[in-house]
């Protein structure tokens, strides 16, 4: 990059008259937010890390127990089950949400009447909170299943697919917006030249459109992946983990995902507060790895373009 010539007229941001006060005083302006970050994030995080090695009832009354909590967490059948649930849920919801969102976006970027209205309508479920959605859908599912003499929490399968439908309904609109932005950025000339070369609509889609919106696909895939791993409110409100059954001498909530499992572990009894905390740390590491993978992947795509 060519080095900019220094100007001293006081109108440029690069001018030292502007730069020096900023350099000198920026800590003052950062301070309020930084303090909030320390109090609301860093301190609880460190305390949580410490408490995951403790047996405690209240945070002020903690006793150091080394790795006991982590051992209990990994031995816990319900944690393993919740992990499997989460993985399965992530795979299914990534596919369902992205495929449907892409095709809705594709349809809505074609010339059609009322496309804007449809976009708004499809986006709207995203504006409703997860707990509200969960209760609404549990009523809907129970009303439907009642006709078949059964109910939502009768078995794990209903709960699982119920959650997939709920989350798809909520997130498709959001992913659709990202896909629409991507589709609109595909240069018209390429599409036009493809058409002149005699490519069919399907060929244009596979060989021109999709490669050109790879960045959107990457973003949406990772968003749905992290969303599925962090899923909590919808899970809590829809089934709350029910049904709970005894499996090989341990209690397992069949429709519980990881975040809800941490929450319910904390509420098992006072002996399990530390175990829940240990699970939360494991959960943090898992989500952190996913987030870093997401960053790396999106960055490498940006380089390609």
């Amino acid at each position: 990059m060519k080095k900019k010539k220094k100007t001293y007229d006081g109108t440029s941001v690069n001018c030292w008259l502007v730069r020096r006060p900023i350099q000198r005083w920026f800590p003052l302006f950062i301070l309020p937010t930084f303090l909030c970050f320390l109090i609301g994030f860093v301190w609880p995080f460190l305390q949580g890390l410490y408490l995951s090695f403790c047996s405690f009832n209240t945070p002020t009354d903690a006793k150091w127990v080394n790795f006991d909590n982590y051992i209990k967490a990994f031995k816990d059948a319900s944690f393993v089950h919740a992990f499997k649930n989460t993985a399965a849920f992530a795979v299914v919801s990534i596919v369902v949400i992205n495929v449907i969102a892409f095709f809705i976006a594709y349809a809505l970027t074609q010339k059609m009447r009322g496309a804007n209205l449809f976009r708004t309508v499809f986006f709207m479920p995203n504006l409703i909170g997860g707990v509200v959605l969960g209760y609404i859908w549990s009523i809907i599912f129970d009303a439907i299943l009642k006709g078949y003499s059964t109910y939502l929490t009768a078995n794990a399968t209903y709960g699982f697919w119920g959650l997939v439908i709920l989350v798809a309904w909520q997130q498709i609109g959001y992913m659709m917006i990202i896909y629409i932005a991507g589709l609109q950025a595909v240069p018209g000339e390429i599409i036009e030249s493809a058409r002149i070369d005699g490519a069919s609509g399907w060929q244009t889609l596979i060989h021109i459109t999709i490669p050109n919106i790879m960045p959107s696909i990457t973003i949406c895939t990772f968003l749905t992946l992290t969303n599925s791993f962090k899923m909590f409110d919808q899970n809590l409100a829809l089934t709350g983990g029910a049904p709970s059954v005894m499996m090989e001498g341990a209690k397992v909530n069949m429709t519980e995902l990881l975040a809800l499992n941490i929450y319910s572990t904390y509420n098992i009894s006072r002996n399990y507060h530390g175990v829940a905390q240990a699970k939360a740390v494991i959960f943090f590491l898992l989500v952190a790895v996913l987030a870093i993978a997401q960053l790396t992947a999106t960055r490498s795509k940006e380089v390609q373009q």
Binding site: T150, Y151, T153, A154, P243, V245, M246, K251, I268, S269
Partner: peptide, 19 residues
């Protein structure tokens, strides 16, 4: 022991049995 949790599991099973 742990009455709410124990009862929830028993009631879940009873509900399934009733249906």
């Amino acid at each position: 022991p742990n009455v709410d949790s124990w009862r929830a599991t028993v009631v879940t099973a009873l509900t399934a049995y009733s249906a």
